[in-house]
Design a binder for these strands. Structure first.
Length: 381
DNA sequence: AAGCCGGGGGA
DNA sequence: TCCCCAGGCTT
């Protein structure tokens, strides 16, 4: 447990990206204070009211890089539609994507269904209780495997997400960049240390969720509420007065400016929408015909299928800004008419029908601005 | 190890 | 505006 080669992080003292196990007394105090705090401060989240491993797994898949408040709206609808792993396994992919539309990271939805098929075929329709078997499922990595196995089955499986990383980094004064390998490994060591030493009164399910809850409610990234923290007395970062500076923020990536023209082609109250090619960015999702505007002209690129070039623009409707990952998109939305043939893959949809599709985020924004409806899909905010 | 994948909310 | 969110996969 103590083997630390004389390499990089070796500047021992404060500043090392390394987990130094606390004394047994300190660890006991941390366990007790956190569990006590969680018992009376946890949020009433819908997925905490079920013990169904499938339902818990769905919540974890949705929560990957996605806020609790967003998932709150999607999770019950998804489960109503696909109530079991077996039901999800046999559903149309299109229907799964539609239920996911707006959550982003659409590979999660495809992986979820692929994993459901494995579960139906090889695990009797029940999410595996074994960590290794869980890790073999597509879309299930170290975090999600630990989360489902510990939360649904109360197995002593460790777990580190962005919250837990922040909590441990501050608690033990570990330097390192957010999300980096060295800090991640140190936090996994810390998580494993604690999960292996829980006492009977603290179940793995409670411990792991308490860690994440502390990160979400108290040990927040920008303005941690240290005065309300049950672990303040043990926290190295608080003692040093630099909780906010830990962990070090990830160096920010340059974002690319993208300018698009989005064409609204309407006939008989229907919009012409095109489907993005499979495999690429937002593959299989529907959008208004789109072209990218560059210094050398208008042309479809990987952000847009081919239909846009067969369009005759008419007049401007609205302007939309949209951010996806590291793209900063400004879109000029114009009415247009169809100038050519060969519109595959595209089809006409009434606004209410469009609301039933797996639309891109940009397309949802445009549709919402052009034809506000009472449809639930557009009533979310 | 670094890049890629959506979208949104809080500061 | 920028950062980060109950991450995982590919190169």
């Amino acid at each position: 447990m103590e083997e630390q080669g004389p390499d990089e992080g070796d500047a021992a003292g404060p500043g090392a990206v390394r987990f130094e196990p606390p004394s047994e007394a300190a660890a006991r105090s941390i366990r007790r204070e956190l569990a006590l705090w969680y018992a009376s401060n946890q949020r009433d989240l819908p997925w905490r009211r079920t013990s169904d491993p499938y339902a818990i797994w769905v919540s974890e898949a949705m929560l990957q890089q996605t806020r609790v408040d967003t998932v709150r709206e999607y999770w019950p609808r998804f489960l109503e539609r696909f109530p079991t792993a077996t039901a999800l396994a046999s559903a149309d992919e299109e229907a799964v994507l539609e239920a996911w539309s707006g959550l982003g990271y659409y590979r999660r939805a495809r992986s979820l269904q692929a994993a459901a098929r494995v579960i139906a075929d090889r695990h009797g329709g029940v999410f595996p209780r074994e960590l290794g078997a869980a890790l073999d499922l597509p879309g299930v990595g170290p975090y999600t495997a630990g989360a489902v196995v510990s939360i649904a089955y109360d197995e002593p499986a460790a777990l580190v997400d962005g919250n837990v990383e922040r909590v441990f980094a501050r608690l033990f004064g570990m330097e390192g960049v957010r999300g980096s390998g060295p800090l991640g490994r140190a936090c996994w060591a810390a998580a494993t240390f604690f999960i292996d030493r829980l006492e009977g009164a603290v179940r793995p399910s409670v411990w792991n969720q308490a860690l994440m809850e502390l990160g979400a409610l108290i040990c927040t990234p920008r303005a941690p509420k240290c005065e309300g923290c049950p672990l303040a007395g043990s926290c190295v970062a608080k003692a040093r007065g630099n909780a906010v500076g830990i962990p070090r923020p990830k160096p920010r990536r340059a974002s690319t400016e993208v300018e698009l023209e989005v064409y609204v082609i309407e006939q008989g109250g229907r919009w012409l929408l095109e489907q993005r090619p499979d495999g690429g960015l937002m593959g299989g999702m529907w959008q208004f015909p789109t072209v990218e505007v560059t210094s050398s002209g208008l042309f479809p690129d990987e952000l847009a299928p081919a239909l846009g070039s067969k369009v005759e623009p008419e007049h401007d409707l609205i302007a939309i800004t949209h951010g996806i990952t590291h793209h900063r998109i400004r879109a000029r939305v114009r009415s247009a008419s169809l100038a050519g043939q060969g519109v595959e893959p595209a089809a006409w949809f009434a606004p209410a029908e469009a609301a039933e599709l797996a639309l891109t985020g940009m397309a949802r924004k445009v549709a919402e601005r052009l034809a506000p409806t009472r449809d639930p899909l557009f009533d979310q905010s």
